[in-house]
Amino acid sequence: MSLPISANSKPAGGSGLVVIGASTGGVRALCTLFENMPPLNASVLLVQHLPRFIEPSFLQTLRRHTRMTVELAQDGALLKPGTISLAPAEVHCTLDRNSRIRLRPGPPVNYVCPSIDVAMKSLSSPPEDSPLVGILLTGMGRDGADGMVHMKRLGGYTLAQDEASCAVFGMPKEAWNAGGADALLPPERIARRLLLWVGRLPGSAAAGK
């Protein structure tokens, strides 16, 4: 069966693509971000550094704090608008043509697997009408900084969490210093900016969180 995608295709439905990276303190930041965000007209790939044993309960936690659908990313599956796909632990997660999930074992990058840099750097230029957004939240180290630079070079919007709201400013600071972030904002304001850039998922109720 042929794939319904072209070289620079956007995810089905004319929607955007959002890649979110987070590490230490990320669960708190993600809950605030998602609680302030309606279902987005975008596919969301989330890379959060966590031990594997909490993956099932972390998925449940995410579902309690967002109105979007939350799934564990599966190798070969297509990202879906209105859905947050969580990169599983202990494999690197990349996207073919910005839409098809690839999961591969590999050595840690920036000491972590999955690496945010690996996911973000797998992206290619999106079509003009398909917004691409990179978000880097709280965390130790520098994973995601190079990926944010890459996304910005592709013409994407990039936001990093501000120091005041971070548990650890390490990763966002590295992205900012590398020129990989358009702005530093707290999660509530990142949510508002996301809505502005990618819009609400068609058919989702206007009221709610």
Partner: peptide
């Protein structure tokens, strides 16, 4: 079965312990 949160007077963990990033839940 455990999660680790640092509770410390150090506002910044510094660059020397990046290898533990995947093990620290919060700070």
């Amino acid at each position: 079965g455990n999660l680790i949160c640092m509770l410390t007077a150090l506002a910044d963990p510094g660059p020397d312990n990046e290898d533990l990033a995947g093990y620290v839940f919060d700070y």
